[in-house]
Computed example of a mutant assay.
Amino acid sequence: MALAANGYFRRLTRRLTEDIDQLDAEEMANSSQASGAQRACDCSRGEEVTMLGRLRSVEACPKSSNASVEAEFFDGTDAVTLVWIGRRRIAGIEPGKKLKVRGRLGDRNGQKVIYNPYYELSGDA
């Protein structure tokens, strides 16, 4: 009984003193792994990937001939830039939204990127 209480207090202390972003990243990585999705840190250029994570930021790039929507996607292990070419806005694609994405992983200036990914919004934002 004392060991169980000791473990509880250790977890509680960790939760209270650890960085919120770090805890969120760990939780996201665990739920991603539990869903069977791939971890972004394990994926490499050219692979067809399915990942589960959250949008950190979304930016519309409405240049006249190259309209696009770009979002920073984070799954708890690494960030991936999602780019929807030819779009000025996408309903439901907002910072903080949780989604599952699928597409071919590419590389743009040393950063992971997926162009025109298939996505599913998750009910639990």
Rank of each mutant, 00 (worst) to 15 (best):
T13Y: 14
D75V: 03
K97F: 10
Q22L: 06
Y8V: 09
I90A: 04
I114T: 08
Q33M: 11
M1I: 04
I90M: 13
I85N: 07
D19F: 11
M1C: 08
N30I: 01
M51L: 05
P117A: 05
Y8S: 10
A60W: 11
A91T: 12
W84C: 02
G92N: 08
K63N: 06
A125E: 11
G76N: 01
P95V: 00
S68I: 12
L105V: 02
I85P: 02
E72P: 00
F73H: 03
I93S: 08
K98S: 11
D124Y: 11
L23Q: 09
G96Y: 05
A34H: 07
E47G: 06
L16S: 07
G53C: 11
P117M: 06
N6S: 15
P95R: 03
I90V: 13
R10W: 15
G76T: 14
C41G: 14
L3V: 15
S122E: 12
R10S: 14
M1S: 09
D42E: 02
G46Q: 02
R14C: 09
N6R: 13
V83N: 03
R45V: 14
T50L: 09
Q111P: 15
V58P: 03
R39V: 15
R14I: 15
D75G: 05
K98L: 13
E48I: 12
S44M: 08
I85R: 04
I114D: 10
S65D: 13
D78H: 15
S35L: 12
I93M: 13
L16D: 01
D78P: 14
G92R: 09
V113Q: 05
S64F: 01
E48N: 12
R11N: 01
R54C: 07
Y119P: 04
A60P: 08
G46F: 03
R10Q: 15
V83R: 05
E18P: 03
T17D: 12
A125Q: 11
P95Y: 04
M51C: 03
R87T: 12
W84N: 00
C41R: 10
G86V: 07
M28L: 02
P62V: 10
I20R: 14
A2C: 13
N30P: 00
L23R: 12
A34M: 04
C41N: 13
L82S: 06
I85Y: 04
K63Y: 10
R108H: 08
N6Y: 14
S57M: 10
Y115N: 10
A125W: 14
G7R: 15
D124L: 13
D78C: 07
D107T: 13
D42L: 06
A37L: 07
K63W: 11
G103H: 07
D19H: 15
P95D: 04
K100F: 03
R89H: 15
M28R: 03
E47L: 09
